[in-house]
Amino acid sequence: MSLLTAERIKLFSTRSPWWCGLAAVVLPIGFTALLVGQANGGLEVGVTTTQATANLGRSVVMVLAALAVTTEYRFSTIRSTFQATPNRIAALLAKTAVVAALAGVLGELVAFGSWGVSRLLKPSADLALDSADDWRSVAGEGLVFALAAVLALGVGILVRQTAGAVALLLVYSLLVENLIQLIPTAGEDIHRWMPFVAADQFIGVGQRIPDPAFGPWGYLVYFAGISLVVLAAALVTANRRDA
């Protein structure tokens, strides 16, 4: 418990998480307002439409999560951290828990903020959350954000440099996963197993995969599995190498 408090003090005693958190919430809600406000006839606004720009917030949250650990390496406070808590796995798990919790809260703010602003701008559209699928599409963002933060933190621990970790995460999640479809014949088959594609299947946004391997919750478990594997690899590496 005291480790969680220590990590919470660390996270909120610098400015960048505040700015990242603000951007992560304001950007997707703003773009949702633009998207829904300009929708007419051609675009039918449904519950999943309100979550179409949430991935922007997810990207910013991943930057926040990566920064939470790369700045520790940048300023060598990771050494103070391991000096105070020689059980490195416990220290890093505490950090992961705090960052993931914050990411989850931000995810819910993004999801319900986007949904709320859509309801205000398009009172005529059917945006009521009247099925389990509707609730999954909106409230599920918190889970996706939290797991994306876990993945980003793992990458941050492995890469250690801010620029490298952030570039890797953004280029991969925003470009590589989609461009991979360009590979002849095998491209489509690889694409359907990409982690962020899986997260989108859970929410119900983005490209629909034909003949999906899992149901929505299965895809969430798959995404969680990949995030936890990356985190586990990061913890083992951090425990072994010199701080």
């Binding site: 003090i9 005693s13 300023f75 406070t77």
Partner: peptide, 14 residues
């Protein structure tokens, strides 16, 4: 080995 944007008190507090 201190984060430059963290206050002295916060550094000791964590």
């Amino acid at each position: 080995w201190v984060h430059p944007n963290r206050s002295a008190r916060a550094h000791l507090a964590w």
